[in-house]
Amino acid sequence: MKIPVCPIIIAIILLLTVLAGASVVPAEVGPEYTVKAAMVRNFAKFTRWPEDSVSKQKKKGMCLCLMGDEAILASFAGIGGKTVKDRTIVLKWVDNLAGLGDCDLLFVTRETRTNMARIMEAVKGRPVLTIGETSEFTRAGGMITFFLKQGRIRFRINPDAVRRSGLKLSSSLLELATIVHPSIGESEQ
């Protein structure tokens, strides 16, 4: 009798995989983009949008646009549908500049191919809280930039860029950030 080798191999591998699943990850360690997604939600809590922009957008909720690496969608899914100041976070995947029209927040990953200056130009003068991960993003006029320090996520804020957009950030948020002025460097709060 011929033994069906392939299905048996698949079954063994699957069984071993499930058994291997018993390992536990320490609770204080989180996947990078899950932590960043949670931080983005917190940034929204500490941000005040101009009254007229909120009234226009309120029906649609708070639109969080994501640009760059599609793999982060799964990490950000956990904040989709959650509320911030009675507005529901709605995730929107954007893969070209034309899609930035109705964003309230914009997160640009380091994987994006899009020219940073073009992104900043597309949202210029509009109340969009821009969040990124690279020094190029900061130089192009991005508002909040994540960086890593000793295995933990920290962030820089460019208050000039925030002011120009018409947004207001709470002092509680500024206290936790490194303040940066692209023309003169950065200072710890």
Partner: peptide, 28 residues
């Protein structure tokens, strides 16, 4: 559970979470 817990942390708590990251290389 660990992901759901992270999403509900406040900013000060999040700053204390150690992250898994792959230096310089796209994770996917």
């Amino acid at each position: 559970a660990e992901d759901r817990d992270i999403y509900d942390l406040d900013l000060k708590q999040l700053l204390e979470v150690k992250v898994e990251t792959l230096n310089k290389r796209p994770q996917h």
